[in-house]
Computed example of a mutant assay.
Amino acid sequence: MHAQIVLFDGFDPLDVVAPYEVLIAGSDFVGGDLEVELVSAEGPRLVRGGCTGSRPLQLEATNYLDPTKPGYVIVPGALGPVDADPDEVATIPVLLARFGDTEAGPLMRRALAHPDVTVATVCGGSLALAMAGLLDGRHANTHHLGTQVLEATGAIPVDARVVDDGDLVTAGGVTSGLDLALHLLDRSYGPRIALAVEAYFAFERRGTVWTNRGALPQAV
């Protein structure tokens, strides 16, 4: 099984590193069955992350994003200013909108259509897909500041830390990347592996994972 974490210019480093560390640990606990790699739509390259100050982090994509590899494709959000002139500064909405205008857009469309691929997102990663027209009618979550944008693009916002909509799994703000990755390990390898990684990192998942099943709550 593969887990491809997609790098793009302006990515949020924590959205990448948190699930990467959790999934690498999970791979170790299952004897290396899970192959985790950093990829980009343009192939191997150094990718400059976003920043709110003067110290951007660069990470190396070691392979091309392959929308046919069985497993997970994980899209992070972006990091940068929120309130600024988008004609002068690469704000978070600008960075996320650019994602769909690159080669990543059609590749992610293929990934979402592939029966052996589950697409996952952290924070604004769901907005990047939504603004590319890829989440119409899908249940999803994002950072709370982007909920209205998510809804405006045709997605169905769900107020849960992790939202599991089958072949689409989305998570809220940046630290939820830890919870997302633990849920993916639980889905693929079971709770023993997820608990082993939780113990390893001295971290416990937060909240109830939303899935589209069960009784609907009644008004009280």
Results as ranks from 00 to 15, higher is better:
residue 2 H to E: 04
residue 2 H to W: 08
residue 13 P to C: 08
residue 13 P to T: 13
residue 18 A to W: 04
residue 21 E to S: 12
residue 25 A to H: 03
residue 29 F to L: 06
residue 31 G to K: 02
residue 32 G to Q: 03
residue 35 E to P: 11
residue 38 L to V: 05
residue 43 G to N: 05
residue 53 G to E: 14
residue 56 P to C: 01
residue 64 Y to F: 11
residue 64 Y to H: 05
residue 65 L to H: 02
residue 65 L to K: 01
residue 71 G to K: 05
residue 73 V to N: 06
residue 75 V to P: 03
residue 80 G to L: 08
residue 84 A to E: 15
residue 85 D to C: 12
residue 87 D to N: 14
residue 92 I to L: 05
residue 93 P to Y: 08
residue 94 V to N: 00
residue 94 V to Y: 00
residue 97 A to Y: 00
residue 98 R to Y: 12
residue 101 D to V: 02
residue 103 E to Q: 09
residue 106 P to K: 00
residue 106 P to C: 04
residue 109 R to Y: 06
residue 118 T to I: 13
residue 127 L to S: 06
residue 140 A to N: 00
residue 143 H to V: 15
residue 152 A to K: 15
residue 154 G to L: 03
residue 156 I to C: 01
residue 156 I to P: 00
residue 157 P to I: 09
residue 164 D to L: 01
residue 168 L to V: 09
residue 169 V to Q: 06
residue 170 T to F: 11
residue 171 A to I: 10
residue 183 H to V: 09
residue 184 L to E: 14
residue 186 D to T: 11
residue 187 R to M: 09
residue 193 I to H: 08
residue 196 A to P: 13
residue 197 V to P: 12
residue 204 E to V: 10
residue 204 E to P: 04
residue 204 E to R: 15
residue 210 W to K: 02
residue 211 T to K: 15
residue 213 R to M: 12
residue 215 A to Y: 08
residue 220 V to E: 12
residue 220 V to A: 12
